[in-house]
Computed example of a mutant assay.
Amino acid sequence: MGTRLSGKVAIVTGGNRGIGRAIAETLACEDATVVIGDLREDRFADCASLERLAFVSLDVTNEASIRAFVDEVLEKFGRIDILVNNAGKVIHKSIDDQTAEDWDWLMAVNLRGPFLMAKYVVPEMRRIGAGTIVNIGSVEGYMVNPWHTAYAATKAGVHGLTLGLAVDLGPDGIRCNTVCPGWIDTELNRAYIEMYPDRSSIERELGQLHPVGRIGAPREVANAVLWLASEESSFVSGEMISVDGARTKKISLPAIVDEEYRVKLTKLQL
């Protein structure tokens, strides 16, 4: 247990699994009271910081739900210091197969949700004269996987939202930043890998895409969020911080030229 967030009340949307769960647990382990906002409640029986976690039902696509959620958090805990907009969804469809309903749903969860959460949380942060918002964006806000047109558009929008909030809210003592995860070992990504018969080859090649020689863990994203939520980053606002093992920094090369590099990474993985 640490004390970097003692006395703070944090909200983590979509905090019942994966990256969101790691964020909630990490903030709680630094002595914050963490309110998980999600559509369903999961048990956190294996979390040592269970007593620091609370659950309040939340649908980030519904403005009335967000308003009621913020009111309940304030009624129960009296303040809101940290907002982590983590809830998000993805669809895998080409532009030909995407429907307007697909597009609107992804926009509602990934972009409208963070906007509305900020809209209703900011007045409370302004009242106490301080606060920090951490949005979970993606490296797909500036590079894109196939069939992710809508998802990439929402994450690029989150990055723009971050810039606007940082500029507008800075005079109120409120900071806003975005963490942009790369390939992280979550249940969702493991399910994607398991679609392929040769799982070990897929995992090995995914690791080789990253100069550090491996994919990331949810806790590594959570640690970046913790830093941004704490006073250790008190002069950092309006930033997009990639947590991707330098994947987005490596220029693609023809396979024959890249082979020596891949061999070195394979040795690191053994």
Results as ranks from 00 to 15, higher is better:
L111N: 00
T149D: 11
D168V: 14
T266W: 13
R214A: 07
L169K: 02
I36Q: 01
G2P: 03
E205N: 11
V134R: 00
L253H: 07
N223Y: 12
A130L: 11
I215D: 05
V90D: 15
G2L: 09
Y120K: 01
E140Q: 05
L268Q: 10
L27D: 00
D185Q: 08
K264R: 15
L270N: 13
S138G: 06
K250F: 14
P123G: 04
P123Q: 09
I174D: 05
Y196C: 06
I19E: 01
K249I: 12
R127P: 07
F77E: 06
A64Q: 12
A24E: 00
I11C: 03
G131W: 00
N145G: 13
S6E: 15
V90S: 13
E30H: 12
G141W: 00
V257G: 04
Y151P: 02
V90H: 08
D31P: 05
G164D: 07
V144C: 10
V225T: 01
Y261P: 06
A153E: 07
T149P: 04
A108F: 04
E63Q: 15
N86H: 10
W105D: 11
F235Q: 10
D102K: 04
L206P: 00
L226H: 00
R52P: 05
G238P: 09
I23Q: 01
H92A: 11
R126F: 09
Y261F: 10
T99G: 07
V122W: 01
M143A: 12
P254M: 08
R17Y: 07
A150E: 03
G216R: 02
P218G: 02
G213R: 03
D97M: 14
V70L: 08
I36V: 13
G245S: 11
P181K: 02
H148V: 15
Y151F: 10
F115K: 04
T266C: 15
R219Q: 09
G238H: 12
R247Q: 11
R190N: 12
A222T: 02
K249M: 14
A28R: 01
S94C: 11
W183D: 14
M117W: 03
P171Y: 02
I241V: 15
I241Q: 13
I80Y: 03
N86C: 13
V12S: 00
N85K: 04
T3N: 10
V60L: 05
L228P: 00
R214G: 06
E260R: 06
S65I: 10
W103Q: 06
G173E: 08
V60A: 03
N86Q: 11
V109C: 01
E72S: 13
R4C: 08
E101R: 15
N223M: 11
A152C: 15
H148I: 14
P211Q: 08
S252D: 13
A100Y: 05
E63R: 15
Q208V: 11
V225Q: 03
R190Y: 09
L53G: 01
F69D: 02
D59C: 06
L74H: 10
T33V: 12
F235V: 14
L116E: 03
L165S: 07
R247S: 08
A64I: 12
M1K: 10
G14C: 02
N145M: 15
R127W: 09
E41D: 10
G20F: 03
G182N: 09
A87D: 01
R214I: 06
L209T: 11
E30L: 05
I128H: 12
